[in-house]
Amino acid sequence: MTTPTAGWAPRAALDTLKARADLYRAVRVFFDARQVLEVDTPVLSRHATVDRHIDSFSTADARGWLQTSPEFAMKRLLCAGSGAIWQMAKVFRAEEAGRFHNPEFTLLEWYRVGFDHHALMNEVEALLRAAGVTGPTFARMSYGEAFDRHAGIDPFTASVDALKALPEAEAFADETDRDVLLDLWMSHRVGPRLGRGTPCFVHDFPASQAALSRVVDGRAQRFELFWEGLELANGFWELSDAGEQHRRFTGEQAWRAARGLPVPPLDAHLIAALDHGLPDCAGVALGLDRLLMRLLHLESLGEVLAFPADRA
């Protein structure tokens, strides 16, 4: 095309943009064959996620928020009786920029009524096959097994002091939240070793990291997919208890408030919808940009984006 160094020029090669179009086509064909309904929900909302580690962009008048995932709106559709649904959504996360992050990216998110998270893992694997991933059956291991194998610690019983023994935890000497410390182990030790050669699902997270998943026997019914050390997807056997969801939201808001972080308004529409009734379902969000990057053996997310943040 043109000089890739010029600021106006696309960062991704033309062949990469064609591969992206092929991926989008494969996704449409996949869900069409499975009779999953494609939906479209607003990018701009009056509510936002209150997740302690996910920061939303707000509009200048502070009355609107850009979605960090289409999850809440899609669950409202499920509560209204949509049945299985999917969409490819542009999502936005403030403060996220780096080799594997861009503040705006594309999530493929879908929900399956009557599935649990293990059934959904099967479907995630089938989708990646349809997208061109070859090789043996994807590995599956629990969060505890992943830590045992790659860090030699038990994430459920290790003391806070033991978790702080990680050199990368030096700046976290005052940290009291063990999940923050577990996240450090995940991003610096365990995660980079997952899914080498063959993609790997990690499931059964600590209950304290349940997010929007249900908790059974003290384990969050949640999974993540890693490929060559990179997190590609996060899925839940979805929590349907409105009261519990409301408690989790207010808990996250309190955590944010205590640390002086912005506290967005929780999504009252979602709580009301859950109160109306969410069918038993599992859902997953998969980063399409990262999947494309791994499929094409590229080294950074910017290489699969026409215009990454520094050129957008």
Partner: peptide, 12 residues
């Protein structure tokens, strides 16, 4: 400068 963040976790 390398940014790392689990999707739902602490960024470093």
């Amino acid at each position: 400068n390398e940014y790392r963040k689990p999707g739902k976790g602490q960024a470093t």
